[in-house]
Deep mutational scan, measured.
Amino acid sequence: MEVRTIKVFTTVDNINLHTQVVDMSMTYGQQFGPTYLDGADVTKIKPHNSHEGKTFYVLPNDDTLRVEAFEYYHTTDPSFLGRYMSALNHTKKWKYPQVNGLTSIKWADNNCYLATALLTLQQIELKFNPPALQDAYYRARAGEAANFCALILAYCNKTVGELGDVRETMSYLFQHANLDSCKRVLNVVCKTCGQQQTTLKGVEAVMYMGTLSYEQFKKGVQIPCTCGKQATKYLVQQESPFVMMSAPPAQYELKHGTFTCASEYTGNYQCGHYKHITSKETLYCIDGALLTKSSEYKGPITDVFYKENSYTTTIK
């Protein structure tokens, strides 16, 4: 009895394709271990004539594949690729409408935090270190965002349907971005203890939790000093293409032309909904596939993004 075979390709990165001759009487799992086709788990399936010449994702289970996976995804987590594939199996079914010149995501599976993050990423200057993220990001900007969303979920250790947080998501993504040249110098002034300067680099240099107003941050924000008295913390120097200011959701007025974009969060910790506000020729609110415009805006804002380049204080 002759062994019926077909020729397929296996890959971990969709760049390096490895030619395989597979036995049609055995499952993919018996031949390769966990195997995925377009995100779908085909591990328990036997090869079919229609699979001839198709590319299958496999887990990096030998040295060659491990090197290829690390170079593309910059992670050695053995569960990463499987999590990416199972997320992709959902995100490829989502709709990605162009809204006001940006790629958004039609609401499904509690994905409003991903839509808000995706919209924000198209408006701030950011370059990702893992080629996987950078490639998928370019495709997302062009309207094909399924891979990018699935990668975000995998890097953030999230599953489809789980509630997510924009600030946490951005923080994970910033860790995989090139923020080497970003720098922030802060000064804390206390009447009792004097003053202390701190220099922050990388992710810490672009994120701040405690106030939404970048102007206020430049002037000074009140913080408790270690001595128990009130101290003032203010920005001395900022070198970065953008800054992200966050605070627990509270009524906040966004003035046209003073910011790049913002995240609105309605609801409580267990259950809520994100919308995205962007400042173009007027203010726009993007909620999944829905767009509304207004000249002014007041609502429960939790993150505001500002364009920056270089700032030095005039406070002496």
Rank of each mutant, 00 (worst) to 15 (best):
P248F: 13
Q175S: 10
F128A: 02
F148L: 12
N129L: 08
S246L: 00
F305Y: 04
F128I: 02
M209S: 12
G194I: 04
F242A: 05
K233D: 00
Y28K: 05
F56M: 13
K201A: 10
H176Y: 09
L118W: 05
A247W: 03
A231V: 04
G194D: 05
K280Q: 12
P130E: 05
T199I: 15
V8W: 04
S181N: 09
L118E: 02
K275W: 02
K229M: 07
V188F: 08
C182L: 01
P60W: 09
L114Y: 03
L119S: 04
C156H: 04
E253C: 09
K201V: 09
P34T: 12
Q237K: 14
N268A: 10
T312N: 09
G202Y: 03
Q270L: 09
I152N: 02
Q222C: 10
V160N: 04
N147S: 14
M244D: 01
C193D: 01
D109G: 04
Q30G: 07
R184V: 01
P224D: 13
Q197E: 11
C227H: 01
F80S: 04
H176S: 06
D77K: 06
I15P: 05
Q31Y: 13
Q31R: 12
S79K: 13
H74F: 06
F217H: 01
P97N: 06
F56T: 05
P131V: 05
A231E: 01
Y96C: 03
Y113C: 04
Q238I: 01
G53P: 05
K46N: 08
V236W: 08
Y96V: 02
A132K: 06
Y311R: 07
D135G: 09
K158H: 05
T278W: 05
R83F: 06
Q237T: 14
L200Q: 15
I6T: 14
E168M: 14
A87F: 05
S86V: 12
H256F: 09
V42W: 12
F148M: 10
A40L: 13
K275A: 09
L118T: 03
Q197S: 13
L17N: 13
K298V: 14
N49S: 14
V99K: 06
G143I: 02
K201E: 14
G288S: 01
G164M: 02
Q196L: 11
P130N: 06
N89M: 09
Y214C: 04
Q31S: 13
G194K: 06
Y172I: 15
F70C: 09
I301P: 00
K280D: 08
K255E: 15
I286W: 04
T55N: 08
K307Y: 15
P47A: 12
V21S: 12
E144F: 10
L118P: 03
P97M: 07
D165R: 03
S79V: 10
T282V: 11
E2P: 11
Y36Q: 05
K44N: 14
A262C: 02
Y96A: 02
M85V: 07
Q216H: 10
N309S: 07
Y234T: 10
F148K: 03
G299E: 01
G33V: 05
N157L: 03
T282L: 11
P224R: 13
W94F: 03
T258Y: 09
L163N: 04
D38T: 11
P300Y: 14
V3M: 14
I301N: 00
R167V: 01
G299N: 00
T192K: 08
I152C: 10
E2S: 07
R4H: 08
P97I: 14
F32W: 15
T19G: 13
F70L: 15
E281W: 00
K293T: 13
Q175H: 08
V221A: 05
Y265K: 00
T292G: 06
M245G: 00
A117W: 02
N309L: 11
A177M: 05
T211R: 03
L212T: 06
K229L: 13
F242L: 01
Q134L: 07
V304P: 00
N110R: 02
F32L: 10
S240M: 02
C225G: 02
W94E: 01
Y311A: 06
R66E: 14
V185Y: 04
G29A: 07
S181R: 14
N129H: 12
C271H: 12
T211F: 07
W94Q: 04
E2V: 11
I301S: 01
V67K: 14
L126H: 03
K183Q: 07
I124H: 02
N147C: 11
S171T: 15
H74Q: 10
Y306V: 00
T43P: 05
V22C: 15
W94L: 01
E239L: 11
L283C: 07
M26A: 15
D77F: 03
A115V: 05
L235T: 02
F259V: 01
F70P: 06
T258M: 14
N110A: 02
Q122I: 03
F148T: 03
T159L: 14
T302K: 00
G39P: 05
V8A: 14
Q175G: 12
T282W: 08
N268H: 09
S294A: 13
E144P: 05
L291A: 11
F259C: 00
G82Q: 15
H273N: 03
V221K: 05
F148A: 04
P224V: 14
A250L: 10
V185N: 02
M24S: 13
N89C: 14
E162M: 09
G220C: 03
L186Y: 12
V304M: 05
V67T: 13
L59S: 14
T159G: 13
T211P: 01
G267W: 06
H48D: 15
V304F: 00
C271W: 14
Y113F: 15
T5A: 13
T159K: 15
G194Q: 04
F32S: 08
D303L: 02
A132F: 04
H90W: 15
E71S: 07
K233C: 12
P97W: 08
T10D: 06
Y72A: 12
M170Y: 03
R167K: 06
C193R: 03
V21F: 14
L126Q: 02
G143V: 04
D13I: 04
Q134K: 13
Q270N: 12
V21D: 13
Q30R: 10
C156N: 06
E253P: 06
V166M: 09
T169P: 01
K293I: 13
A289E: 11
S295T: 15
G143Q: 06
E215W: 05
G101A: 06
I124P: 03
R66D: 09
Q175I: 06
N111K: 03
F32Q: 11
S50Q: 12
L17I: 07
V185G: 02
N187Q: 12
A146C: 10
K106G: 15
Y57S: 09
Q30P: 08
A142V: 12
V243E: 01
A136W: 09
L163C: 10
K127N: 14
D109L: 05
D180R: 09
S86N: 11
Q175Y: 10
A150M: 01
G161T: 05
Q20D: 14
Y297R: 00
N89V: 15
V58L: 11
L102Y: 07
P47T: 05
A205I: 00
G257R: 06
D23Q: 10
Y172H: 08
R184F: 03
K233E: 14
M209A: 15
L17Q: 15
P60G: 10
H18I: 12
T10A: 11
V304C: 05
T11M: 06
Q270W: 14
Y138D: 13
R139D: 12
G202M: 00
D180T: 13
L59V: 08
S181T: 11
Y252R: 04
M85S: 05
G220I: 01
A177Q: 03
T232V: 14
Y269I: 08
C271L: 09
D41R: 08
Q31N: 14
G220Q: 03
I301C: 04
A87Q: 06
A140E: 02
K219D: 08
L163S: 07
L179D: 01
G267P: 05
Y73M: 04
Y96N: 01
I223S: 12
Y265I: 01
E52Y: 11
V99Q: 08
D180S: 12
L81C: 08
F32Y: 08
D180L: 07
N187P: 01
T116P: 04
K293R: 10
K275Q: 06
V12K: 09
T313H: 15
Q98P: 06
G267N: 05
K95S: 14
Y269S: 13
F217D: 01
P131I: 04
G53Y: 12
E52W: 15
R83P: 03
S104A: 07
Q20T: 14
T91S: 05
L114I: 07
R184M: 03
Q123A: 06
Y252M: 09
T35G: 07
T292M: 10
A262V: 02
E2Q: 10
T75V: 13
D38P: 08
Y155H: 05
Y96W: 04
T260A: 09
P47I: 07
E281S: 06
T19K: 09
G161L: 04
Q251S: 13
G194S: 05
E162Q: 10
E144C: 14
L173I: 11
A115S: 08
E71H: 08
E239D: 09
